[in-house]
Design a protein around this nucleic acid. Structure first.
Length: 590
RNA sequence: CGGGAUGUAGCCUAGUGGCUAAGGCGCCUGCUUUGGGAGCAGGAGAUCGCGAGUUCGAGUCCCGCCAUCCCGACCA
């Protein structure tokens, strides 16, 4: 490809609303164009990168038996009504009507479409195990797109769907994806880790997320250096220090003016925060007899802990959870800042397991300016549910080994779900087993966001001048920079011939043939980030060759013209070997 | 949906209520130049986000709306 003919161009300065490094470089390099919030056009350079990433995905899917299909982006609403998600999902799902006034949806994911397909084509146990996938557009009307391609509204996802007759079969396909996903990320040059995650609205039993650790990430990973435990903070567990057991003491009401926070209270009473209990008032939306219903929830935690809303939502099986309003709290006989379960009516009381066994805590008196000493769960108030609802954080102790946990921000680049029969049962996706009896298909679903993967690779591989592509997904392998020479056409002639020779040798080459100053060309080459650069100019020609340089760094070397093709090939091989060496067998962790 | 910020040419920015909205980058033409974003000369390019208002006069002040970004809520 000649640089002079590429659709798109580089920018010296990034638009002021691009903040993330990947966003800036991708726009400045002429890779992407923002159309609206969370909507991007991909220009030829980006398209070439995406094509390579998708090629790797096709390759890895083929290795685990995946067959490519394509399902539509616009789907009839009926299948989403069958699965129930038509009713569960809010405005992130865009609904429309076709000319016949039928309800339609823009696909956010394709579980429903797949079930609809499987219903018709999977009839017998003999047709499983099966695995199909596509790389297809998803539309999620996200309330807050951000950071360039990291979080967008329209994006392409590689999503695969496994169909099995047994849980063992599902487990096998799940583990195959676990390894395949690592292989995909490693082949793209991305360091990702797998963590346990919440199954969320996807339902099912087990899920993992694949995370790229970066401060611009929106998720928080809790991990342990010493034993390797890691988990999304939403579901992370930790070891809670048991309180010292002591005789239950008499409850006593004390005046505590201006002690609305636990910190104030502990300071005022000169006790550690761990000797207090905090009440968090929430309102959950739960399903009862297929009707949505609001349920007031009073969560009780020890004062030194934070509520984990995901854990609480799972504990009460809420499809939605929000903080309670002040008037809702007062209606039930409590006071914000001085709340506790004692005497509060119409509330589902959920108590963190640590509180349940911590004696003589200080809790609110449900009266402005007063707390109660020596409050004990069970004796003084009844818990409807006792379970872990506390948020793990850095500094807590590892559930596995007791070492100190750490926390880090991350971007979710992929996820895998054991769906089980969540969709096949609701949608009647049945097959006949050996006995001729109808059984629901046991399913899994597995996704990777293609554009998000691309931008994470840029986040990982760049320097102050621009992108440094891993050779496996670089838009081109070699960037030939021609420096025009007013004293003759030698450089130009050599570069033109080199361009043809490299192409003939099967090397992907971007040829900067523009009439630009050397500085412009070098800066653009750094920005675009092609891994190998050959400079054709008088200076090197006089020394008998061409200048050869790796984008990742190191000194330029003069390579004789006769050796340059061989040199390029061996350098590409060397870079590819580096990628291959990073592909390793990973240990599956439940 | 709540909080904050911004909106002037393709990009970055300046612009005290007052004359024909300024500069840089980029773009076009010509000359010149070619090893880390060259120089000279000329040129094109603006509904100052949109609408309403205050004013003799609004890019500038007020109100409404829209858009984009950041924080939070949300994230199948």
């Amino acid at each position: 490809m000649r640089f002079s003919q590429i659709f798109g161009h580089t920018l010296k300065e990034a638009p002021s609303d691009a903040q993330a490094v990947s966003h800036q470089y991708l726009i400045r390099g002429g890779y992407i164009h923002q159309v609206a919030a969370g909507l991007f056009s991909y220009l030829p350079l980006a398209r070439r990168v995406l094509n390579k990433i998708e090629r790797i995905m096709h390759d890895e899917m083929a290795k685990i038996g995946g067959q490519e299909i394509t399902m539509p982006v616009v789907l009839p609403a009926d299948m989403w009504k069958d699965s129930g998600r038509w009713y569960q999902i809010g405005s992130e799902m865009t609904r429309l009507k076709d000319r016949k006034d039928h309800d339609m949806v823009l696909a956010m994911t394709h579980e429903e479409a797949l079930c609809d397909l499987a219903k018709k084509y999977i009839r017998s146990y003999k047709e499983m195990p099966s695995l199909v996938y596509h790389i297809q557009t998803k539309w999620r009307d996200d309330p807050r797109p951000r950071a360039g391609l990291i979080r967008v509204r329209e994006f392409k996802m590689k999503d695969s769907y496994s169909m099995d007759t047994s849980w063992e079969g599902l487990d096998k396909q799940y583990r195959a994806h676990y390894q395949a996903y690592f292989d995909i990320f490693h082949r793209c040059g991305l360091d990702a880790i797998a963590v346990k995650s919440d199954t969320g609205m996807m339902g099912g039993k087990i899920a993992h997320e694949f995370m790229y650790l970066t401060p611009i990430g929106e998720d928080t990973i809790i991990y342990c250096d010493s034993c390797g435990y890691n988990s999304n903070r939403q579901v992370a567990e930790f070891s809670k220090d048991k309180s010292e057991q002591e005789a239950l003491a008499e409850t006593e009401k004390v005046e505590t003016p201006d002690c609305k926070t636990i910190a104030d209270l502990a300071e005022f009473l000169k006790i550690p925060e761990s000797k207090t209990a905090k009440a968090v008032f929430m309102v959950a939306t739960v399903m009862e007899d297929n009707e949505e219903k609001e349920q007031f929830v009073l969560a009780v935690l020890r004062g030194d802990m934070e509520l984990n809303e995901t854990k609480l939502a799972n504990a009460v099986q809420a499809k939605d959870l929000r903080p309670a309003h002040e008037d809702e709290i007062k209606q039930r006989g409590s006071v914000p800042g001085y709340g506790s379960p004692i005497g509060v009516k119409d509330a589902l009381v959920v108590v963190d397991d640590l509180v349940a066994e911590s004696p003589n805590l200080v809790a609110g008196a449900n009266e402005e300016g007063f707390h109660l000493l020596n409050v004990n769960c069970g004796r003084d108030y009844k818990a409807d549910i006792v379970t872990d609802i506390a948020a793990a954080d850095k500094g807590h102790k590892c559930i596995e080994c007791g070492a100190v946990l750490k926390a880090e921000k991350a971007v979710e680049v992929g996820n895998i779900f054991k769906l089980g029969t969540r969709y096949s049962e609701s949608m009647g996706c049945l097959y006949q087993d050996q006995n001729g009896e109808l059984q629901p298909i046991i399913m899994g679903s597995y996704g990777i966001g293609v554009g998000r993967l691309l931008s994470c690779v840029v986040e990982q591989h760049h320097d102050d001048h621009g992108i440094i592509w891993p050779v496996s997904i670089a838009p081109f392998q070699v960037h030939v920079v021609l420096l025009h020479d007013r004293k003759g056409t030698e450089a130009q002639d050599v570069a033109e011939k080199l361009y043809e020779d490299l192409k003939a040798a099967g090397i992907e080459v971007l040829f900067d043939d523009r009439q630009e100053s050397p500085g412009s060309k070098f800066n653009d080459a750094d920005l675009i980030g092609i891994p190998l650069r050959i400079t054709v100019g008088r200076r090197a020609l006089e020394k008998g060759g061409l200048e050869f340089k790796y984008r990742q760094g190191g000194e330029a070397e003069i390579v004789p013209l006769s050796d340059i093709i061989t040199k390029c090939k061996s350098a590409v091989d060397e870079l590819e070997k580096g990628i291959k060496d990073s592909i390793v067998k990973v240990e599956y962790k439940d």
